[in-house]
């Protein structure tokens, strides 16, 4: 399965790339300017800020929106998940607006949320994304901002200092992970494998 990994500034897409390759994806790395609309599946890396990332995605914005509407699997990781929304408290910039709402700072005074936290399943949501991942599995987080609560499609939530936030989302072909699957040990490996399997089916 060929997966397109968008090259955006300062992402640690090196590790994400190797994570995808370990699960036998052929990774096609390209910049947002090079997006044609014919990609079969897209991953947005993100060790970056909302502003930086949204700016760098601007050339591909309308194409990516059209692709998601047409059913192409797209998965955003960390800031790459946040940029699926419209805007963020972190700074100016226009997100992809594929999901409505504003990204907010975590409430706790002590940020970033850094380290391993549990994923709590949401009833009936995220069946594909979470296949084979046990309730309460740990994943690795490194972030200070969070996406808004979702009416539907939150596959998992995670708690940070008394605040629950969506930590994985699955809206049909649109997936998002607040945690870093590339460094989340076997939990991350399974989620990447699930995305590739889903993308493979979707592109048939």
């Amino acid at each position: 399965m060929k997966v397109t990994l968008l090259r955006t500034p300062a992402g640690n897409f090196g590790r994400l790339r190797r994570g995808l390759e370990r699960e036998r994806a052929r990774v096609d790395e390209r910049s947002p300017r090079e997006v044609t609309g014919n990609e079969r599946a897209v991953v947005l890396a993100g060790v970056s800020s909302f502003t930086t990332l949204s700016r760098s995605l601007a050339p591909a914005r309308s194409t990516l929106r059209r692709m998601v509407e047409a059913g192409v699997p797209l998965m955003g990781v960390c800031a790459g998940m946040q940029v699926l929304f419209g805007s963020s408290e972190e700074g100016p910039g226009r997100g992809l607006d594929l999901l409505s709402g504003r990204v907010r700072r975590l409430r706790a005074r002590r940020v970033p949320n850094l380290g391993w936290s549990r994923l709590a399943r949401t009833d009936g949501e995220g069946r594909r994304l979470m296949e084979g991942v046990a309730e309460g599995s740990y994943a690795y987080f490194a972030h200070s901002y969070r996406v808004p609560a979702l009416a539907q499609g939150a596959a998992t939530t995670t708690e940070y200092r008394g605040e629950d936030f969506p930590s994985a989302l699955e809206h049909g072909n649109l997936w998002g992970l607040q945690f870093h699957p590339e460094v989340s040990s076997s939990t991350g490996t399974k989620v990447l494998r699930n995305f590739i399997a889903y993308a493979e089916e979707a592109s048939r």
Binding site: P9, V47, S48, P112, A142
Partner: peptide, 8 residues
């Protein structure tokens, strides 16, 4: 921090 984010 500006370039890579505080967490890095």
């Amino acid at each position: 921090a500006d370039r890579f984010g505080r967490q890095a």
